[in-house]
Computed example of a mutant assay.
Amino acid sequence: MSGNRSKKAVPRPRVLVVGFAGHQGKEYLPVVRENADVVGGVDPAPAASSLADAWEFPHYTLLGEALARTEFDVAVVTVPHSEHFPVCSEILAHGRHVIKEKPFAVTEQEARQLIHLAQQADRSIFTLLQRNFNPVFRFARENLTRIGQPYWFSYDYHLNLAHPTTGWRASRKHAMGGVLLDMGYHLIDVLSGMFPEPSQVHSAFVHHYQEMRDRRLEDLVSLMSSYPATGLKGSLRISRHHYEKAEHLCVLGTEGALNVTPGVAVLHSIGGLPLESFTWDGPKSDIARSMIAHYLGHLDDLRYRQDHLQRQLRSVHTIEGIYRDRLREYDEIADRCA
């Protein structure tokens, strides 16, 4: 009898894709198919039926119908911000794992309810944040201590759209916020992985287009964050209508500096001499592939689950606090103008 026993094949996770006909859903769909079996899809969009036929999985227009008729292990959710909480709540209450687009939640109350539902069902709810799986950002996190005690950072992230925001992101009802909630969630999550939650955040909201001002959906946000316990301060600037598309994080420390773009991270000594650099020029699909595979492989990892949830809760708390302060100012201006 042979001493080599073949390992029992681990069954592939069964995935329900929710919101698969949108831009992000279509981007993730082939990556999900590489790592799991797509057993159904939910999307009311007119193009969803033909897309489901092309990918050969059952299509449902309503989530409740899919939950009643489909056996699955995890749902991959890519829907407008306003739908995140009701969709994920229903899936968790059904006893299934969730892998979802950012933000984790729009408010801290919703975030805590999702965490409660996940814990009650003993299920994971993970957030799709690609920078956490970009090798350049991983190098930055792992080498941050080499610059000594950080005392300043600046983080800029800009798109260069030549037209007003369109689609559901142009609707206050569906977007629930402007660039801070949409683009800014990525940056605040990156900073949450490097530093504690800021004690103070001062913000300025700017509007390139009048219709976005009327809808209270900021086109640009500038933040100044303070961390009194460590003496760290930092700035973030996020916009959709810059003259160029760019992303750049710089952290200054007592023993050097760290510069990060999506493709290159460089460690500098005091005075600016480059000490070490890390470059990654792989396709974006490789990051998505690594992220999806990692989450599917950690669905039952309790420690990873808890760390992820606490980090997301910090990000949601920070963003909700900024919006609360800004909306209060909007209301005060409106009262003066009445």
Rank of each mutant, 00 (worst) to 15 (best):
H97S: 06
V190Y: 11
S89K: 00
R169T: 04
E108N: 07
H116W: 07
A170D: 10
L161K: 13
Y209E: 03
G178C: 04
A204H: 12
Q109K: 13
Q130R: 12
A175I: 00
S124H: 06
S203V: 09
N160Y: 04
F104H: 01
F205R: 13
E101R: 15
R131K: 13
Q149C: 09
I99E: 08
I99T: 05
T166E: 11
F205K: 05
H208G: 11
Q119T: 01
V106Q: 12
V79Y: 12
I91T: 14
D182K: 07
F126I: 07
A105D: 10
H208R: 15
H116F: 05
M176F: 15
A204E: 15
H84S: 14
Y155W: 04
H186Y: 06
D182M: 13
H97V: 07
L191E: 05
V136D: 02
R131F: 03
D156M: 03
Q113G: 01
G193V: 00
Q200K: 04
L117N: 01
G95L: 04
Q120M: 07
R96T: 05
R138V: 11
F139L: 10
F153S: 08
D182A: 10
T166P: 06
A162V: 05
Y151P: 13
A121D: 01
F195M: 10
L181Y: 08
P80A: 10
S82M: 02
A140T: 09
G184S: 09
T166H: 06
S89M: 13
E83M: 13
P86A: 03
D156P: 05
S199D: 13
R112Y: 13
G184A: 09
A162S: 15
K102S: 01
L180Y: 07
T78K: 09
S203R: 11
K102F: 14
K100P: 08
H163T: 07
P150R: 09
R112G: 11
H207D: 14
D189R: 14
S199G: 12
A93C: 08
G95V: 04
Q119P: 08
C88Y: 00
E211N: 06
Q149A: 15
S171P: 11
E197I: 00
F195I: 08
Q109Y: 07
T107Q: 02
I91Y: 10
G148K: 02
L187K: 02
D214A: 14
A121F: 15
E211A: 12
R112H: 08
A93L: 02
R96G: 06
T78S: 13
G193W: 07
G95F: 00
Y185E: 11
P196W: 03
V201M: 06
D182V: 02
H202Q: 01
R123E: 02
A111G: 07
K102L: 11
L129N: 14
F133W: 05
E211Y: 11
L191M: 12
P80D: 05
S192P: 10
R172H: 13
A140R: 00
E83W: 12
W168D: 00
G177L: 00
S154V: 02
L159D: 01
M212V: 09
